[in-house]
Amino acid sequence: MFPIQSYEKADSVDDAIRLLSANPEAKPIAGGTDLLIRLRDGKKAFGHLVDIHDLAELKQCAIDAAGTLLIGSGVRFSDALASDIIRNHLPHLHTAAGTVGGPQIRNIATIGGNICNGVTSADSASPLLASEAQLIIQGPAGRRETPLSDFFMGPGKVALAQNEILIAFAISRENYRGYAGDYYKFAMREAMDIATIGCAATCKVSNHTLVDLRLALGVAAPTPIRCRHAESVARGQPLTEELLKKIETAVAEDVNPRTSWRASKEFRRHIIKELVGRVVRNAIHQAGGTNQ
């Protein structure tokens, strides 16, 4: 038995917000793959639950009239893997979805939960950061939008009020059209493991020029991060082997990895350089680019 003290099933997002507002101790539960484990460990912070598991409103995966890609927070990793929209337009997120846990976890864990947990190792975080995802959040006063880059406040801390629900991720057309991408998760095992480093890149290439590069890393800092310095070194430059080496070196200024039982800081720095090189090369290759 899980030490649940109160449980309310929400039948809509509005209902969930009402239920959360009525009990300031309550937290939403979606896939539950992280929350139920913490609850079983006896973490009292999760004793009051508002259940948003399987809410149809949160499961959309579509492109709207303006060309904006909308991914519901309740989309599970297996839904993401089965989605042609995600495969075609966000290949780095598609690849990342396949690296989460194992089949049973991917069948139940949601992308929204992965982001709202606020952990640096979240596999969906770096691809969504790289693609400038906007978060659509609903609270008692209505909806608001915030960039994902402003959402991560610290380890396990996100800019979401207790009575707000993350509805969806919105990626505008200019942030995915013409971009190719890749993701690589370095972990000690090929499945059922937490990333030692996760690296996502998305880029646009034209006439042997790297028109744009967006690079994001997980576990390279206390929260998932964008590598703005490495991106500025890359943007608009001719595609050469020298440029790729420069990007690999530049990323050192963007990161702040730590030593944990999984890996030392020094090892992570080595892996970051190696992964950035591989993932950026592969993203460029996917975008049809070749070195001069």
Binding site: F2, Y7, K9, I29, G32, T33, L36, I37, R40, D51, H53, D54, S78, G101, G102, P103, Q104, I105, N107, I108, M192
Partner: peptide
């Protein structure tokens, strides 16, 4: 394991493979 890692509790719910140890019965 009781934490969704070992798969000894694997069942199918509407033909979808899940770990029943971290799946609420109400679902």
């Amino acid at each position: 394991c009781g934490v969704g890692e070992c798969g000894a509790c694997t069942i199918l719910v509407d033909d979808v493979l899940i770990d029943s140890c971290i799946y609420l019965a109400v679902w």
